[in-house]
Amino acid sequence: MSSEQALVAAVDIGGTKIAGALVGAEDGRLSRRTRRPTPAAEPGEAVFAAVAEVLAELAGAPEWARVERVGLGSAGPVDGLRGLVSPVNITGWRDFPLVARVRELVPGLPVVLTGDGVAMTAAEHWRGAARGHRNALCMVVSTGVGGGLVLDGALHPGPSGNAGHIGHISVDLDGAPCPCGGRGCLEGLASGTAIAARAAAAGWRPAGDDASATAVAAAAGQGDPIALAAFDRAAQALAAGIAATAALVELEVVVIGGGVAQSGEVLFGPLRRWLGSYATLSFVQGLEVRPALLGGEAGLVGAAAAAIRAAGR
């Protein structure tokens, strides 16, 4: 990282962890990383206290003098117009005034809020697998499912910052109720939580104490039929959601990141197969699906990228 370039203090807030880093405004490289577990089941002030700890650690670095703005990426939905967050998987935050509270901690610095799916999209379009593409959907498939859009070469967050929030479109008309208030949402079928729950309900049991989607993926990689079926169902739901989105906005590429995407061909193999059944119109048949490149850095790089774009740089 150049010793002279301006920096963005980026914070990535998810259902399991709150991460922070200083990000180069020119090259997007990360330094001074830190993280805290998200106390997602605790009151909202406890969650904000973890955010404050992350920012305090970053502010203690000598490089803080070169920080020009703060970028916040949060699980959604978010209200970018009012600076509020209501993450489905953080129950203590409902219309929580995150931007106003963070401004109190960093007086004089602009604070930009972005949904985590849009942040990941900004990152992958700036430095990752969507770079050079004018029309892309980028998705996070992890504890939850989020997404964002690049349309005609530009990040498209929408008026409130939630455009592309594919995790809460319905792909099962008679599906189970979702915590968001909907029914049959993609997140309820394709998230890591959903995959693990589906496998367990069908009788799968881990060899040890790990009953996560990562363990299900490992079992699927070894040919376990129940684990394979759980991933196949998730892939089918993803294919339905992706094909519907592509039909609406004519995508060139879909980039998928997050913990579930790290299962590799256990997910991408059936996903490409199911896309053959759902993406059948002539203008979506050539849709390319590829894994994200930035891994765990995407949320932080994307929060910074969105803040930089908001400044018109």
Rank of each mutant, 00 (worst) to 15 (best):
N135R: 15
R309S: 15
T121L: 02
S142Q: 08
I256V: 15
A261H: 07
G73N: 13
V88E: 02
G258S: 02
A235N: 06
D209Y: 00
L30F: 09
A9F: 03
G147I: 02
W274E: 15
L275M: 15
P270I: 07
G299C: 10
A65M: 09
P87C: 10
A46I: 09
A244W: 08
A298P: 09
V78F: 09
A10Q: 08
D209L: 06
V54F: 10
L149S: 01
A247T: 12
V47M: 10
V112G: 04
G153R: 02
T214P: 13
E297C: 00
G146A: 08
A292Q: 07
L30H: 05
L281K: 01
G175T: 07
G312W: 01
V111F: 07
E288N: 13
A305H: 05
P87R: 01
N135C: 14
I90M: 08
A40V: 04
W204C: 09
A246H: 02
D116K: 09
G92M: 05
G76N: 14
A219M: 11
A202N: 13
A202R: 08
H165R: 10
A234E: 00
L267T: 04
A50E: 14
P225L: 03
S212E: 05
L287N: 11
G302I: 02
P77Y: 00
A10N: 06
S263N: 05
L58S: 06
G269Q: 07
I195G: 09
G264F: 00
L281R: 07
A190V: 03
D174H: 15
A123H: 04
V260L: 10
E288L: 15
H125E: 12
S191K: 02
R94F: 10
A239R: 00
A196H: 05
I308V: 15
A240L: 15
G76M: 12
V54R: 07
D12F: 11
C180Y: 04
R82G: 11
T280R: 14
A100L: 12
D27G: 15
T280I: 14
V8F: 10
A217K: 02
I242Q: 04
S282V: 15
L105E: 00
V106G: 13
P179R: 07
A129Q: 04
H125P: 14
V102C: 08
A239G: 09
R198P: 00
L55I: 11
H165C: 12
G132N: 03
L271Y: 01
G146I: 04
W126Y: 14
A46Y: 07
F96T: 14
Q262L: 15
S86I: 09
A59V: 09
A240N: 06
V111H: 03
A6C: 09
A234N: 01
L238Y: 06
A247M: 13
L300H: 01
E124Q: 03
G83Y: 01
G221T: 11
G299F: 01
A176Q: 15
R66A: 09
E53P: 07
A197H: 03
A10L: 09
R32G: 12
W93I: 04
E252W: 05
L186M: 11
D12L: 04
N135V: 11
A215L: 10
M1S: 14
A307E: 11
S74F: 06
R198T: 12
R36C: 06
P110A: 01
V266M: 05
A197Y: 03
G302P: 08
G184V: 13
A10M: 07
A194I: 00
V51C: 12
